[in-house]
Design a protein around this nucleic acid. Structure first.
Lengths: 306, 306
DNA sequence: CGCACTGTTGAGCCTAATCAAGTTGTGTGG
DNA sequence: CCACACAACTTGATTAGGCTCAACAGTGCG
């Protein structure tokens, strides 16, 4: 296991810290596209360097206009390259340039490889993190090694907001990750000075709570078949950087990680995937790529209507 | 099932709406006592009318001083009568009298009987609720009737904060409940005008997220024995109105509700309780009252160290 | 090409669910 | 105060879904 980088002022050997241009610090992704209008608006793939899009004021306002669903004037959202998936940029309606500049001044930028640790449970909680690209697993362990992955985080997600002396969970990169982090003390000052950020975080937190309730329903009451079906249907909307073609699900995590997320074993996950394939609901394009052939049927299975 | 009262401006036949004296609107309870210093400070039992304690400024500052753990200058907390458990009062360091008066002016006060519905899933989400006394179950259903209770709420807890057109969960009283509610639109205005409230809610939400992660670990990876043990240990800290004598757990909910909270069946819950009793870890004082005889041993079981 | 790792498939087992009685507790009315 | 009805709870017997253990098959890398 790699050294953690969130425990002290220094970085572990596997993580790099660097400064990026202004206005690339925060990647605030929208909530899952529950309401139709709130879907993520991706930049056109042919635009290579996304940063250029935001340097002129006029471009940003265009993005905002496009990304703004009716009645969501105060909502934050981001934009990521659908092709490369890397380094999404924040487009934050209520945060002005001064806000963004302040954020950037306080942020450290991190680069992590697969398996690197962002946060280790029980370490002193000194930082707040924001993922800017890649995917992260968040989990808790029992003393005998049983693991429950409580969530996968993607570009735009926050980590370590909870108050408390130590982290109650661990977080590791499952893909190459870029992130930025703030010292807790500076984060608190930031919150005080940037009400728009606090509003955004509260809205985010309440949505995550709703998602957590969904996951509790899954873990407490759904069968293995229903769990996997639910997972496949909800996975794409969790990863705004890779919306991908309709019905195509990219799984950056291993079977073991899926199992630990769904409260199952790898064998059961594998069997259920095979069963869904045999029934013609999905197709296993590759190990990390699944195609949903009959979304309605899969939805019926996921909701226990089979 | 009773009529829901959160769906329209009117109240159902089983719920009463009344106005209470100023400054009794919000009951903001502290987070679970994870850090030693953050424990709830109860008023001395001999004080009958708690409201008197808060009418003089000097009394309030005394309460604040007593309730304030080191390094938590901005934290909200409440105080409830340990004897009667009813109507806790808010003591909110960063909210002044004007804030509280504004809250009161906007709140409707509700009274609910056992089984009454506060919130019904899929109804339009028009209100935000705050429990001022009693206990509430929050749950989700699958179409075939399987139920997962995602949490029990007590005095001081908030409900319905998530944005969204409709509620994603149901909430019902499991004891006589008093609550107050705000229209969503007025709640949003309130948030804008009362930054202290937003800060309190964000802190609350992040703590609830941490608790939700704990529950996911329980539902996904713990055995029936571990689940029940964990539940018994965490129950008292969830109900600040009734800290009760040390090692005494009051269970206002039925076995069916415990089962639906722990992802088990009533039979399994019953069997496990019997087993814990046989092993001498707990004693069943009555159906709703359990005494923990060997807390350390129970903790070991809960953490999977048995 | 070989090795290590991840994933798939099979056989048997075990925990908790299901089905089925009983028992205790509670509230109501006589 | 007791008799009764009903709900909540407990206990027992049986079943089944998913886990464990085990073997094998892809996949990727040096």
């Amino acid at each position: 296991m790699a050294d953690p980088i969130g425990t002290a002022g220094e970085t572990g050997p596997t993580a790099g810290v660097s400064r990026l241009p202004a206005h690339t610090t925060m990647a605030i992704r929208p909530f899952m596209a529950q309401t139709p209008g709130a879907a993520l608006i991706s930049l056109k793939p042919e635009i290579e360097d996304l940063r250029h899009r935001l340097e002129g004021k006029e471009d940003r306002s265009v993005l905002e206009l496009k990304a703004l669903p009716a009645g969501c004037a105060d909502r934050r959202r981001d934009n990521a390259c659908a092709a490369c998936g890397a380094r999404p940029l924040s487009v934050c309606a209520s945060m002005d340039d001064a806000d963004l500049a302040r954020l950037d001044a306080l942020a450290e930028h991190l680069t992590l490889n697969v398996g690197d640790t962002l946060i280790r449970a029980d370490d002193p909680a000194r930082h707040v993190f924001n993922i800017t690209s890649g995917s992260v697993r968040v989990y808790r362990l029992l003393s005998d090694g049983r693991r429950q992955i409580t969530g996968f985080l993607f570009a735009g997600d926050f980590l370590g907001l909870a108050t408390g002396e130590t982290y109650a969970f661990s977080a590791e990169a499952i893909e190459p990750v870029t992130a930025c982090r703030f010292r807790k003390s500076e984060y608190r000052a930031l919150i005080r000075e940037t009400p728009a950020l606090e509003t955004a975080l509260l809205e985010r937190a309440t949505h995550e709570l709703a998602a957590a309730q969904n996951q509790m329903l899954l873990l407490g009451r759904k069968t293995a078949l229903e769990r996997v079906a639910t997972f496949l249907l909800e996975m794409p909307s969790h990863d705004p950087a890779r919306p991908g073609p309709q019905g195509r699900v990219h799984l950056p995590m291993t079977r073991a990680e899926i199992a630990d997320y769904l409260g199952l074993t790898i064998e059961t996950v594998s069997r259920v995937l095979t069963r869904l394939k045999t029934q013609g609901l999905i197709r296993l394009v590759s190990l990390t790529e699944i195609r949903i052939e009959r979304p309605e049927a899969l939805r019926a299975v996921a909701d226990g209507e089979a």
